[in-house]
Amino acid sequence: MSSTSPEGCLAANDWWCGEYLRTRQSELVDATVEHIWITAVAILIAVLLAVPLAVAARRWRAARGPALAVTTILYTVPSLAMFALLLPVFGLSAAVVVTGLVLYSLTVLVRNTLAGLEAVPQEATEAARGMGYGPGRLLFEVELPLALPALLAGVRIATVTAVSLTTIGAIVGYGGLGNLIYDGMESWFKAQVLTASVLCVLLAVLADVLLLALQRALTPWTRSRRRRRAAGSPGGPAATASGADGGAPAPQLAGRAG
């Protein structure tokens, strides 16, 4: 490639260009780093908000309907509109993108955590109460650990979705790899668009694999339990929303890409 002509594939505007990878390496790294921190901050905030919300929705029945309704409505709002609506609140800043991603992630996380909490076996809570556990200790030492697989399955879905939605942040200049796609689109720079797109997909897959490893490490008991469940006992209400692999989420949440 570059040995025959100094700028061959760049000048030809090829889709794939080694020369581009080499010369724009730092730009690509910067965009990837921005992409990662925007996504990571958003997911962290979303988890910190979703767990108390789910616990509250479980404790107070009255909070359940509104919590689910609001998060579902938020999920319906298209991403470009979401970021545009947050523009007057935060101005042209990364906060627009982070807040938008937090709002989207809440839907999946609240739903999954709630399903996980509701699937905690009655016997487990009864036994803990019998052993003298107070409500706080019951929540932190019995209920939340048992809901963890469902929560983590939600985190995986939310993270993969957030990685792909971050690209839309390019509209306010904070889209990570999306910025490169946006600029490449305006200047018709094919190598830049394809490289950034591929990196974005790789990032989503990598995040998913890492979170799966984390899930396995944090909840070693789910593997034996899943085997037992497969052997015949019914999966319980959370099974579809939280299958320990996160493999089959609730069908209608399948698409949040726009």
Binding site: S164, T167, G184, V193, V201, A204, D208, A254, R256, G258
Partner: peptide
């Protein structure tokens, strides 16, 4: 059916729109 929707989530819509239009 399940894998298609999982894979679809990882692919940014914006990227596909731009790639196809170019």
């Amino acid at each position: 059916a399940v894998n298609i929707s999982n894979a679809g989530r990882a692919v940014p819509t914006f990227a596909v729109l731009v790639l196809l239009s170019m």
